[in-house]
């Protein structure tokens, strides 16, 4: 397994946000995480990245990484794209992408920028307030692509992206998979759901189902969240 989560529990400000979460992501799998607002998807994503302390176990390629810091996990090949990416004053898109890029050639940067549907000259703009929400999300995706991670955790990569471009983003994620990256994909969009191989439903901080994408999708439509917090 690429990633194995065992009995994960997270408490924040005295509130149990994730309860006894178990699930797995296989190599080169696009694993969808479904759940209504507030069900704990973002918390789970950030916990895997190492942002919150947690109880339970996180295994990455068989190794226990539960006690590793964020950057140690990143250096093992895990990365996360935030639902609302940060903005950086004074940092150009190019400088920002250089931080994560494995291949730091300008050619490669340009190629990836094009792949996520951005114009070349955006490289020289600031990763600040001047970028639109959608542009910022695309830059984030480019940054993840350039890192060539083993596991990419994408928290709603399509939110803020216009309808026409969602297909492009889906293609980019499929491309990641074909390059050997496993993806944990959080999304609410129907189109994007269809690129997933397997899926897990979170509800009130618990896994209520995990399995093949179509089966889980049906289940989610029928009963998105059977439990109460």
């Amino acid at each position: 397994m690429m990633l194995k989560i065992e009995n994960l529990r997270i408490v924040r400000e005295g509130k149990e946000i994730l309860k006894n979460v178990n699930f797995e992501i296989a190599p080169q799998e696009i694993h969808l995480v479904l759940g209504i607002n507030g069900s704990g998807k973002t918390t789970l994503a950030q916990a895997i990245m190492g942002i919150y302390p947690c109880e339970g176990k996180i295994l990455f390629e068989g190794e226990d990484i539960t006690h590793l810091s964020v950057w140690e996990r990143a250096r093992k090949g895990i990365t996360l794209a935030f639902q609302e990416p940060a903005r950086f004053e004074g940092l150009s898109v190019k400088d920002y992408l250089m931080v994560s890029a494995k291949n730091k050639s300008l050619n490669r940067l340009e190629e990836v920028i094009k792949m996520v549907g951005l114009p070349r000259n955006i490289l020289f703009q600031e990763v600040g307030d001047n970028l639109s929400g959608g542009e910022r999300k695309r830059v984030e995706l480019a940054s993840v692509l350039l890192m060539e991670p083993k596991l990419a955790i994408l928290d709603e990569p399509d939110s803020g992206i216009d309808m026409l471009s969602c297909k492009l983003i889906s293609e980019v994620i499929e491309r990641m998979k074909s390059m050997g990256t496993s993806v944990m994909l959080i999304t609410h969009s129907e189109d994007m759901i269809n690129i997933a191989d397997r899926a897990t439903i979170l509800c009130a901080g618990k896994v209520v189902a995990s399995g093949e994408r179509d089966e889980i999708k049906r289940l989610f439509k029928y009963s998105p969240c059977p439990l109460k917090r």
Binding site: V70, A86, S100
Partner: peptide
């Protein structure tokens, strides 16, 4: 958030602060 973003790309805290 800036710090975590850069650390999620493999920079240590000090390296991230420098950026």
């Amino acid at each position: 958030k800036q710090l975590l973003t850069l650390m999620a790309r493999g920079l240590t805290e000090e390296e991230a602060i420098d950026v």
